[in-house]
Amino acid sequence: MKLFVILFVCALAISSSFAYDPSPLQDICVAIAEPKNAVFVNGKFCKNPNLTVADDFLYQGLNMPGDTNNKLGSKVTPVTVDQISGLNTLGISAARIDFAPYGLNPPHTHPRGTEFLIVVEGELYVGFVLSNQLGNRLITKVLKPGDVFVFPIGMIHFQLNVGKINAVAFAGLSSQNPGVITIANAVFGAKPPINPDVLTKAFQVDKKVIDYLQSQFWYDNN
């Protein structure tokens, strides 16, 4: 029996070194019986390569500031496969993030991509929170122009403009469609709303607090 267990564990170890689940490129992918009903192939259908043109690989406009006149004082301009169709299967994307004075890109995650951030104007207080396994430790830094900071895939992170002037940063992400889940929007702005019994117990607060938070307009800066 011991020999069987040892051989079984070895077989699993060997097989796992040659196979793994592919990284998802959309939020959900429901299995279907008939290929004719398929919606996505690697997130998008592929164009005949003989028909590609330069514009398939071009995006113009990252030189233009985003509108930060909103409740958060920030605006993200994404450049994913939805903006550049030629990014399909290439595993990269980008974004420009504009901040008004004291503007915030609120706590959020990218479920499918690691992000590196380059500050070009202003000063940003940035950080990410490690998983429960690592005690939810907060990693933070104040960045100045020319500084680069990395947010590991899936970690909750944020950026706050701590200066009295506008700030600008550019980000690169390791997925053509990294996705974004803004924590407050997802928890308190879910449609339909999450049952308040769940949230009162999760946050250990009175139901009136949850009712108030769920009644707010949760702005999406992406």
Rank of each mutant, 00 (worst) to 15 (best):
L12N: 11
A11N: 01
F116W: 14
L143R: 06
G91V: 04
G86E: 03
L130C: 08
I6H: 09
P196T: 07
T52N: 12
V142K: 15
G135Y: 13
P192C: 02
D197C: 05
V39D: 10
L160E: 01
G146K: 10
L138P: 02
A54W: 08
Y59C: 08
Q176D: 10
I97W: 13
E34T: 00
F57R: 05
D147V: 09
M155E: 05
L72F: 14
P24K: 04
L62M: 13
N221Q: 09
A167G: 13
T140G: 05
N105S: 11
F57A: 09
N221D: 07
L25V: 13
H108F: 04
N221T: 05
L117G: 03
G73R: 09
K44W: 07
A169L: 02
V30W: 05
G91K: 10
V142T: 15
L90D: 13
F45V: 04
G146D: 08
N185V: 01
I210Y: 08
F188D: 02
D67T: 01
F57S: 06
K36Y: 13
Q216I: 05
D56E: 11
I139P: 04
T80E: 06
V142Y: 07
P101R: 14
L87V: 00
C29R: 12
N88F: 10
H157V: 08
A202V: 13
T52W: 09
M1T: 01
D147R: 04
N222L: 15
I139V: 15
G154E: 09
K44I: 00
D21G: 07
V5D: 04
G189Q: 08
Q216D: 02
N69P: 03
V162N: 03
